[in-house]
């Protein structure tokens, strides 16, 4: 999908550039302005009497369409905006829980209500850890 989006975007840019350049070149042709407009320079600049060929117009529109499609295709996936979908993803996917920076990511935001870091029983944790080390050493020996 990503490669297709890049190709569409590139094509759109090429077509747009080509259309713009063609329009510029066309405006330089002496025949492009059919009748020299009457009136002052101001009214001429306000009402430019340019008759672009239909193929340049169509190319511009086509390139704009291609770019629109390409930009939509190349945008990242949508984030869930429903609470249950968002919460479900935190529960079941490791990727969604990853901490990317301070305050971003990190799983269930309510997990603190069960872990309760403010009431950390450090002596119990130390004992638990020492037991784990002992068990680990024993299992390695046997």
């Amino acid at each position: 999908m990503a490669a297709a989006a890049i190709i569409v975007n590139a094509l759109g840019v090429v077509f747009l550039a080509h259309a713009v350049y063609s329009a510029y070149e066309h405006s330089l042709l002496p025949s492009s302005t059919a009748t020299p407009p009457s009136g002052s320079a101001l009214s001429r600049s306000l009402k430019p009497n340019v008759n672009l060929p239909i193929d340049i117009t169509l190319e511009t529109l086509f390139s704009a369409l291609l770019l629109c499609v390409g930009v939509v295709l190349s945008s990242p996936g949508l984030k869930p905006i429903q609470w249950n979908v968002w919460a479900g993803r935190l529960e079941k996917s490791k990727e969604a829980r990853e901490i990317t920076e301070v305050g971003v990511g990190g799983g269930n935001p309510y997990a603190g209500l069960e872990e309760r870091a403010g009431f950390l029983d450090i002596r119990g944790k130390r004992k638990e850890f020492a037991d784990w080390i002992k068990k680990d050493a024993r299992s390695e020996k046997s």
Partner: peptide
């Protein structure tokens, strides 16, 4: 479960 899809 209503608040969290596929909550084991």
């Amino acid at each position: 479960i209503e608040l969290c899809d596929d909550y084991l």
